[in-house]
């Protein structure tokens, strides 16, 4: 049973990783806590559910790839519009405006989703059902969960490669470390900021796309995710890839084991950890101040 608890934790961590990474990048590079980040995840979920619904009867992997691609493109596009029109004028404004505008965007997107997709939940479980289950040490385990972990690992590797090995990544990290210095060095801030934002949005969209085969896409699905991602970012550290990974694992595993052994503590414990880290090391485990 312990192995299964650990697998569940890893699975949950995989989702958190995808959805928190964008939040973390945006916070790290732009210094904005994007409250609308969960809504990008919700867009991904609804778009993917729509596509999976359209493709009933196709092979599971094809459905998933199409849905995930569509979700990433759309969430990325919404991110692009949001960044270039609404957020751009905010970078020089005080904190309260930055936070509030993302709060406003969150409300707008929630209702726009309702306008476009209707208020009802959207089921899209065909890929989940099609993949079935396998036996792991005598316990049945859904293949789809393993699939999600695999995809997340790939996405994580890709981001790591991008950040560590490409010029783009190096410039992004330079901005995170010292914005003014980076600007002085002639790094094209504006273009990079857009790239980082769209990347984060697309990852959130991917997270949403991967979740809908297991649970219907519903209005408000972004809210809970935002809170969980917030905890991860606070624990791991703003803008740190390593931090997001560690934070996701910590939150995922903590949740899985508290539910198994002392379910009452689930949420309070996670917030307690977050507050403790904020008090002791406000920049998070791996973040730079």
């Amino acid at each position: 049973m312990g192995l299964i608890y650990a697998l569940n934790g890893l699975y949950f961590a995989a989702f958190l990783f995808l959805t928190s990474l964008g939040l973390s990048i945006i916070l790290g590079v732009m210094g904005i806590l994007n409250l609308a980040h969960g809504s990008l995840y919700a867009i991904g979920g609804f778009v993917a559910a729509y596509f999976i619904g359209m493709m009933t009867g196709s092979p599971a992997v094809l459905m998933l790839v199409t849905a995930a691609a569509a979700a990433m493109v759309l969430a990325g596009a919404v991110g692009l519009v949001m960044e270039t029109t609404l957020l751009k004028p905010m970078y020089k404004r005080p904190l309260e405006y930055q936070l509030l505008i993302t709060f406003g965007i969150l409300m707008l997107i929630e209702d726009l989703i309702k306008l476009v997709f209707g208020g009802e939940s959207r089921y899209a479980s065909a890929p989940f059902d099609a993949m079935g289950s396998i036996e792991i040490t005598g316990h049945t385990y859904p293949v789809y969960f393993l699939f999600v972990m695999g995809i997340t690992a790939l996405a994580g590797l890709f981001i790591w490669w991008l950040m560590a090995k490409t010029k783009l990544g190096i410039m992004l990290r330079a901005i995170e470390m010292d914005r003014d210095m980076a600007q002085a060095m002639g790094i094209p801030m504006r273009r990079l900021t857009v790239v980082a934002f769209v990347l984060g949005a697309a990852l959130a969209g991917l997270g949403g796309a991967l979740v809908v085969p297991t649970t219907p896409a519903v209005l408000g699905m972004g809210m809970d995710v935002l809170i969980m991602a917030f905890i991860v970012v606070v624990i791991g550290g703003l803008g740190s890839l390593k931090g997001t990974l560690v934070g996701s694992l910590l939150v995922g595993l903590t949740r899985s084991f508290t539910v198994a052994f002392y379910a009452e503590l689930e949420m309070p414990l996670l917030f307690m950890i977050a507050v403790l880290i904020l008090v002791v090391k406000p920049e998070g485990l791996f973040g730079q101040k």
Partner: peptide
């Protein structure tokens, strides 16, 4: 006895606890 929050999307942890 398990008490998931309303509108939980991931029950894997709860399901394993029930199996256990």
């Amino acid at each position: 006895t398990l008490w998931p929050k309303i509108f939980t999307t991931d029950y894997t942890a709860h399901i394993s606890a029930l199996q256990g």
